[in-house]
């Protein structure tokens, strides 16, 4: 368990997350991709805190902030899913064409 291996794991999680966020049609699956990206970001932050940051408390604080961002993303995402489903009975990104030119 070195900084390099931890960052490699974080990179893998971020890569899978980017694939999911770009490829999924269902809103909730798309949000799962975003969550995976943030998962990798949190792991990288903790890894830097443990190996490069000499245990500076701001490193842990950054992870807490990313967790808050994750909670906000989930809550807003679900609220938007509910609002879109009410208005359009839609649960996939393809059914929303309002901003398409």
């Amino acid at each position: 368990m070195t900084l390099a291996t931890l960052l490699l794991l974080a990179a893998a999680l971020i890569g899978i997350g980017i694939y999911g966020a770009l490829s999924q049609q269902s809103f909730v699956m798309l949000m799962m991709g975003l969550e995976l990206i943030l998962n990798g970001v949190m792991l990288a932050a903790v890894a830097f805190w443990a190996f490069s940051g000499a245990g500076a408390p701001e490193g842990q604080l950054l992870t807490i902030i990313v967790m808050a961002v994750m909670a906000i993303e989930m809550a807003m995402g679900f609220a938007l899913v509910v609002a879109v489903f009410r208005g359009k009975q839609a649960d996939t990104t393809e059914s929303l064409t309002g901003l398409k030119h």
Binding site: A4, S23, Q24, S26, F51
Partner: peptide, 30 residues
């Protein structure tokens, strides 16, 4: 249920490669 799958796979692989190159090549303080 996927769209633009090739681009997505490409974006995922490229971001993994770029990030892991940074992880392996950059010199971080110990």
């Amino acid at each position: 249920m996927v769209h633009q799958e090739r681009i997505s796979i490409g974006a995922g692989v490229v971001s993994f490669l770029v990030l892991s190159a940074m992880a392996l090549l950059a010199v971080f303080p110990d």
